[in-house]
Design a protein around this nucleic acid. Sequence first.
DNA 1: TGCCAGGCCGGGT
DNA 2: ACCCGGCATGGC
Length: 224
Amino acid sequence: MTSRTRGGRETGERLTAFYDALFESFGPQGWWPGRTRFEVIVGAILTQNTSWSNVERAIGNLRAGRLLNPEKLHALDLKELSGLIRPAGYFNVKAGRLKNFLDFLFSKYGGSISRLFNKKGEGTRGELLAVVGIGPETADSILLYAGGRPEFVVDAYTRRVFSRHGLVGPVASYDEVKSLFMENLEPDSKVFNEYHALIVRVGKHYCKPREPMCSRCPLEEFLS
DNA sequence: TGCCAGGCCGGGT
DNA sequence: ACCCGGCATGGC
């Protein structure tokens, strides 16, 4: 198999070694936990600054109402939508954000997720970012996990884990952190998928906000 | 009990 | 170009 690294050899090999150690410890994570691409997109918006267990309840409400498709959700009353997604928190804000995405999907792609992702080129990310309520992490999550595009997803865990290992600064911007991966790994959506999920996994269990360093963490051997 | 969770927006400096 | 308050539920 070909190397997963590119660009600067040092950094690329280090990132690959991290990935291998994490995969060795935890195995494949099976992300994203959604039955359809549309459900993945809904989940990506609902999980903003929110634990996944809360999102599952909200998704469950939508599924119980057979509303987990673009047509039904687009037609749904805003107040009813916010009531159904209440368990996900920020429900008024997120109901509006879901509506914003659906308005965009119907006005530009006739409500078709396939058409959204079939259009090739770089334009899709910019279009998603233009939707009010979709920022860089949500856009990249949608592109990677719903669209299969090789966009590396950066989140709070990514920052914490990799700044503790000195690979990024503690206050680096989203695009700076993303570049670390995009410029040093081959663009492989399968690897990006697992890598992000593994970062979340190790971050949850071994890299907590207050505790200065991880102990018994699979990445402990890489600390200097 | 307080802190954290798979962020983002809008207004202010 | 940053900085900050607001948004809100559920788990530990």
